[in-house]
């Protein structure tokens, strides 16, 4: 652990000012950042505590969408009446993550910024990690990679984005609201996270000093059915081996429209757009769903220990769709 200074911001302006200094990091729930600091993985010079900023509100937007403040806690968001009624897939995803204690602390903004749990990243005792130490190599490619990504990886990095929430937000077409020195901007969730490519050290397109202020959800589909399925090695407090968030608009047993996002198998929250395009017109039987699910993993690159994820991701999609449709 290294020494750092700590300031508590009283308002957004003050936070942005403090956050503009090099080496600053915003502190929300701290459930991930503090662990990384203790493990010497993150070495911020200055922590800017934003917990007193008025950013915890969850409110309906004109036009029927929902705004979730960046400091809303995972538990509060998951249990909010509007989230439960209109976006139950988000509620399910949030409640499937971490433990109650962590969910009570963790914030929506922090969850978006959650870093990978790849052991080669989180343990500085490993010499190689391009995300932690660019150019040092990737320990996972030839190492233990059962938990790693089969989608969106590069020769530089195959670390999984660990968030459950992000998967639901991807399926819901969420937008991230940012405030920075240059003012406000809005970034679609799909554009917020990055695949590693040649710069695995960058998880997101957030600019230095920028602060997440809220996440906005577009109006829910009328009569939408949804489901979040998380497949993991134990019943709770485990990261996904594969997860799927799906939204369905049904005409009887026939799919009118669908959204499908994957977690646990990709380097960023992963929209299965090819699957989504193939689903309309299909019925909820296993065979036709399976054919559409296969399109999600056409580009998969399994590693030595995680080939099973290619199969598991498809099965998770099929199961989520069938459960959403009420046939499983």
């Amino acid at each position: 652990m290294h020494a750092f200074t700590y300031t508590r911001a009283a308002d957004v302006g003050g936070a942005l000012q403090a956050g503009a200094a090099q080496g600053s990091a915003y502190l929300g729930g701290g459930t991930n950042l503090l662990d990384l600091i203790k493990g010497d993985v993150a070495q911020p010079l200055r922590l800017v505590d934003i917990n007193r900023l008025p950013l915890a509100q969850i409110r309906e937007l004109p036009g029927g969408g929902l705004s979730i403040g960046a400091l809303a806690r995972n538990s509060d968001t998951a249990n909010h009446a509007l989230v439960r009624q209109r976006y139950p897939v988000l509620s399910e995803a949030l409640l499937s993550g971490a433990s109650p204690q962590l969910r009570n602390m963790a914030t929506i903004g922090g969850n978006l910024m959650q870093r990978t749990r790849c052991p080669y990243f989180t343990d500085v005792g490993f010499a190689m990690c391009n995300k932690r130490n660019p150019g040092s190599g990737c320990g996972a490619l030839q190492g233990r990679n059962r938990m790693h990504a089969v989608l969106g990886g590069s020769e530089q990095c195959v670390a999984v984005n660990p968030s459950d929430m992000n998967v639901a937000l991807a399926a819901l077409d969420a937008t991230v609201l940012l405030r920075g020195p240059q003012g406000e901007r809005r970034v679609a969730l799909a554009e917020f996270h990055r695949v590693p490519g040649n710069s695995p050290e960058l998880d997101t397109n957030l600019l230095p000093g920028e602060l997440i202020t809220a996440v906005e959800l577009p109006p829910a589909w009328p009569n939408a059915r949804s489901r979040y399925i998380k497949v993991r090695d134990r019943a709770s407090y485990a990261f996904a081996l594969a997860s799927a968030a799906v939204l369905l608009d049904l005409d009887g047993q026939t799919i009118r429209a669908a959204r499908v996002a994957l977690g646990g198998v990709a380097t960023k929250p992963w929209r299965a757009t090819a699957t989504e395009r193939a689903l309309p017109g299909r019925r909820l039987d296993e065979g036709s769903l399976r054919a559409a699910a296969a399109l999600a993993v056409r580009e998969a690159h399994p590693l030595r220990e995680n080939a099973f994820k290619v199969e598991l991701a498809q099965r998770a999609i099929v199961r989520a769709l069938r459960e959403a449709g009420g046939v499983a």
Binding site: P119, Y120, D123, G125, F126, G143, R234, A235, S236, Y237
Partner: peptide, 30 residues
């Protein structure tokens, strides 16, 4: 039976799951 395993990095011999988040023991729900 279901989950316990200490995993070593094959190159360095370092344990890759040296925490209770990564080294799984049953939780109540199991």
């Amino acid at each position: 039976a279901l989950m316990e395993e200490t995993s070593l990095d094959p190159a360095s011999g370092r344990v890759v799951n040296a925490s209770l988040a990564d080294y799984h023991v049953p939780v109540n729900a199991d």
